[in-house]
Structure formats: C-alpha cells, structure tokens
C-alpha cells in the first residue's frame, strides 16, 4: 500500500490479510489463492503488509478492551491515512471487527467478506468457473459464527459453491443453528475447559455425517479446527478441508 501511495495511486479495494492469513502456513495458502483470483479478475487492490496489525478481535473477545482499542485506533489511523474506502478480508473475525466495531472509533469503511466479494466477481463475470471440476463432489459448508450468526451472511458462500457445480449438502445444524468450530472468543489461543469432547471434534462429526468429499470453510480458524478434526478421525486422505477461495482458485485452474 505504501508503494501505491508513493506513486499517488489509490486501490479499488484494500485486502486486509489478517494475522492468520499472514503467518499461519495453512491460512497463507488461502491468502495466496485469493490474491491469485484478485489478479485474474484484474482488481486493483493493495495490502498494508508490515503496516497491518491485529484488528484486536481476540483481545476484545478475551475481555481486554484496552488492548483492542489501542489496536483499533492505530489501525484506523493507518487506514484513514491512506483514505481507504473499501476493505475485503478472508477472515470473518477481522470482517466483524472492521465492519461493526471500528465505526464507533472513527473507522468508517465498506467492509466485505471474501466470499461476498468472490460471489460478486462471479456474478459480474470477472471470474468464470468452467470445466465442472467439482461436478458430483459432495461439499458441505461450515458456517463461521462471525460471518453467519454475527453478521447474517449465510448465502454468499453457498452461492459461490453452487456456481462451482458441486453438490451442496447441509449439516444438520447449519446457518443460524450452525455449531461453532470451537476457536472463537479467543479460544484459539488457550486450552479448552474440561468437558467430555472437543468442540471441533463434535463439529467434524456433524460434517462427516454428510459423507462429504470436501468440507468448505470461510474462516482460517474454522479451517484449522476442522482440519484437526478430520485428522483426528483419520480421514485426511479422503476428505479435504478447503476455503471457498481455494475452491474457486482450483476451478479457475490457477
């Protein structure tokens, strides 16, 4: 972004990569897939790179409002400095925080989730999926809490999957009743409390009931949790856990 700004240019959209998308090896693949799609669709975009910092979501959910607001205000200063109008992100937690919690602190942007963005690109014909690579493949979609219940977006990821011509099969708890993967509310970073089962195992069992070829996700943390769950069930050879962006990228054969 700094380079673009130095040239006096303004991108159409800022891609907020997020910490998982920047550092986590699995999530970096999602970042790369999404970037390839943006390039293919000839979208003018930028990333903040080293100037990006955690949105503060995990701190806020953990209860550290100070740290959250420090992060938020620092980020808002950067974003406003570059006069950013529109932000796209592949992480529902960043999405929720940027969209809902930044405006109150002076950060007003049009924020979209990457599944919404990809749906638009497909609708506009800027991306085309051909070849029917997923024809006959059973795909089940795991709703991220912070995209679904938190922000009422259930349809965009499903629309993208339908365009891929896969066979979309719903789990018994889906959409508003979707079960959490177990990572939200900063649980990703701590040990679970004592219980009789890990949440991600329970959710993976629900996914396996649909006998899927692919478990589609729209969140890097859900992706990790479901991948771990599938490994726990020793199904990693048969079932792939993939982000919506990766599926579109595969269909695009990029």
């Amino acid at each position: 972004m700094a380079e673009l700004a130095a040239q006096g240019k303004q991108p159409e959209v800022l891609f907020w990569v997020g910490c998982a998308g920047s550092f986590d090896d699995r999530a970096k693949k999602i970042t790369k897939a999404f970037v390839k799609l943006l390039l293919k669709a000839e979208i003018s975009f930028a990333v903040l790179g080293p100037e990006e910092s955690c949105t503060g979501d995990p701190a806020k959910r953990a209860g550290n409002e100070f740290l959250f607001q420090m992060q938020a205000m620092t980020n808002i200063e950067v974003l406003n400095g570059y006069e950013i109008k529109k932000v796209v992100t592949a992480c529902p937690h960043c999405f929720n925080t940027l969209k809902n919690e930044y405006p109150g602190l002076g950060g007003h942007y049009e924020v979209v989730h990457h599944t919404q963005f990809l749906k638009q690109l497909l609708d506009q014909g800027k991306l085309k999926v051909e070849g029917g690579q997923f024809k006959g493949k059973r795909i089940t979609f795991h709703d991220p809490c912070y995209l679904g219940r938190a922000n009422n977006e259930y349809q965009a990821p499903r629309d993208v999957l339908t365009k891929l011509e896969g066979e979309l099969i719903e789990m018994k708890s889906c959409k508003a009743k979707g079960l959490c993967c177990g990572a939200g509310g900063a649980q990703m970073f701590k040990d679970a409390e004592a219980g009789n089962k890990e949440i991600n195992i329970k959710r993976t069992e629900q996914a396996l009931e649909t006998k899927p070829d692919i478990i589609a996700a729209g969140c890097p943390f859900c992706n990790t949790m479901m991948t771990d769950g599938v490994k726990n069930k020793e199904k990693e050879g048969a079932i792939a856990v993939m982000d919506i962006a990766e599926l579109v990228q595969q269909a695009e054969d990029l």
Binding site: C19, C54, P58, A59, A62, N64, L67, F189, K190
Partner: peptide, 17 residues
Amino acid sequence: TGLNNMMSNVENNGAPW
C-alpha cells in the same frame, strides 16, 4: 495463560503469535 501470551504478542508484534 494462553490468552496472556496471545495478548502480549498482540501488544508487542501486532499479531496473536
């Protein structure tokens, strides 16, 4: 503890790791 680590990482590195 896990959350304290996460928070100090966010504070120092701008990321939970």
